[in-house]
């Protein structure tokens, strides 16, 4: 987690984000994958709305996690719960649901604090170090963005249907990006391919 955040911080700094922008994004967004997605878009001067909509779509998986965690938080004051909600993240979710007992709210909150802290410190360390590297493309560092995306997909692919959805989305996006300027190919291809997949594939029993 710390290393992942350090890599992000370094890449964000090289993409021209200031230390303040990097710290703010970690504090108020705190969603690793979407922050990786946003940095090259911001660097390329994408309009804010395109980045925001893409962020929303990348983070839609949180709905799944929040719905799974919700029953464990019965009886919590709603004000606190609204704060805890900001901490919903992949790592804490994985840790909490991997335990044999039903997901414990305090275990979850503890892991959120740990993840949040290491994410922000890691990103700032990376940002300071990243500011020292000149000419990142010489070291292939611009390629780190697509590399992270491909690795994140590859670890999640379970069956043949997943491969078809991922490959179809990539090819569709390639076709759209070839002919249309801007960044909308990401959201269009992402929603279209996942939507078709969800309609055609057989849902697993919960």
């Amino acid at each position: 987690m710390f290393v992942y955040a350090t890599v992000w911080g370094g890449l964000a700094r090289q993409a021209g984000l200031s230390l303040g922008e990097i710290a703010l994004m970690c504090l108020v967004v705190t969603a690793g994958a979407s922050q990786f997605v946003a940095v090259p878009m911001i660097a390329a001067g994408a309009p804010p709305l395109a980045v925001i909509v893409t962020t929303y779509v990348v983070n839609m998986r949180h709905y799944l996690m929040a719905a799974t965690l919700a029953p464990a938080f019965r009886g919590f004051p709603r004000g606190w719960l609204a704060l805890v909600a900001h901490g919903v993240n992949d790592e804490s979710f994985a840790l909490t649901t991997a335990r044999r007992d039903p997901a414990g709210p305090w275990f979850f909150i503890g892991s959120v604090v740990a993840v949040y802290g290491s994410f922000i410190v890691g990103a700032l360390v990376g940002a300071v170090v990243g500011g020292l590297v000149r000419d990142p493309s010489r070291y292939g560092l611009d390629f780190a963005f697509p590399a992270v995306f491909l690795a994140l997909v590859a670890v999640q692919l379970r069956g043949r249907g997943d491969w078809v959805v991922a490959g179809g989305a990539g090819l569709l996006a390639l076709g759209i990006a070839w002919h249309l300027p801007g960044n909308w190919h990401i959201v269009i291809a992402g929603l279209a391919a996942s939507g078709v997949g969800a309609l055609v594939m057989r849902p697993e029993s919960p």
Binding site: A33, V37, P40, T54, V57, V58, M60, R61, Y63, L64, F145, P146, F149, L150, L152, V153, Q156, L157, D162, V165, A166, G167, G168, A169, G170, L171, L172, A173, L174, A177, W178, H185, I186, V187, A189, G190, L191, A192, A193, S194, G195, G197, A198, M201, P203, E204, P206
Partner: peptide
């Protein structure tokens, strides 16, 4: 649930392949 699981699997290659 299936759709929400598939969305990131589709969005990430949609980003990466054109890059």
């Amino acid at each position: 649930r299936l759709w929400l699981r598939l969305v990131p699997l589709a969005v990430l290659p949609a980003l990466a392949i054109p890059m």
